[in-house]
Amino acid sequence: MHRLLKRQIKQVYGKQFDTNDLDEKTLKLMENITETYENFDEEKAFLNHTVKENKKAIQEAYKSMLTSSRLAVIGEMMENITHQWKQPLSIILNLVSILKIEMKDNRELEIIADQTKYLNKTILDFTNFSSHSDQEKKLFKLKKSIAETIHIFNFQATEHHIIIKQDLVEELVINGDIGKFNQALLVLFSNAKDAFVSRDIKERVIEIKTEETALDVVVSVQDNAGGIPDDVIDKIFEPYFTTKFKDKGTGIGLSMTYNIVQNMNGTINVHNHKDGTLFTITVPKNSIKDIHG
């Protein structure tokens, strides 16, 4: 007899009750109900689990949607500010250039001219990072991009005693601007370096790994620098968000990485994993044949 049914009988009729007192048909019916109930319970657990999983997926999708819409709004705002500033800057620069002719060797005027040029340069720097008008998409080998980036980063790695471990799949090809993708990776390395230094981590390791799925290429960058606090991890891709001291960070790096990956029709995610931060970039896969054909 079913364990669950035995328990139910005991509960209802007391310990002394003899199941033989029930007729066979009733017993069978009860057993059947018990079994159905148990199946139902399993089903319920399964459904609960599925609902939980779906809820998690929806939450994550919602979160990434929020992030990208927020980024779009901020980007648009920056663009408008830049536009508004260009007008007066243009006028000031023009008038200064006239005054420079009229008042030769005027130190105050030179200062105004330099400061205005500096203002101009700043707004251009801040807007250029989100610009993709000059971007040229081409197929390139992921391994080449990683090698170039490590080559650039090598000096800093040596200086700050950082070990870079590589686990790379050969011949992966993706579509985008290799220079920009290098920049995107460099930001991740450089942020890890900053975290190593500011937290005074002893054994410093960055692991870069590539994998392929049916349609995508996955690049993961893991460090052991202690991770990102939960209260800020959702904001790190926002432009001008920074946890670093003002002279060290403009808050542009990771949002630039985000934009570059997004322009390649890819996604970037961040998690606290093991004893550090794990960035996962997923971009559509191209075949090596495309590069020659």
Partner: peptide, 15 residues
């Protein structure tokens, strides 16, 4: 003032 740095499509159209 919209040339060069603009990212949005309608502004690029101006260019």
């Amino acid at each position: 003032a919209w040339l060069d740095t603009s990212t949005s499509e309608d502004k690029q159209l101006i260019g």
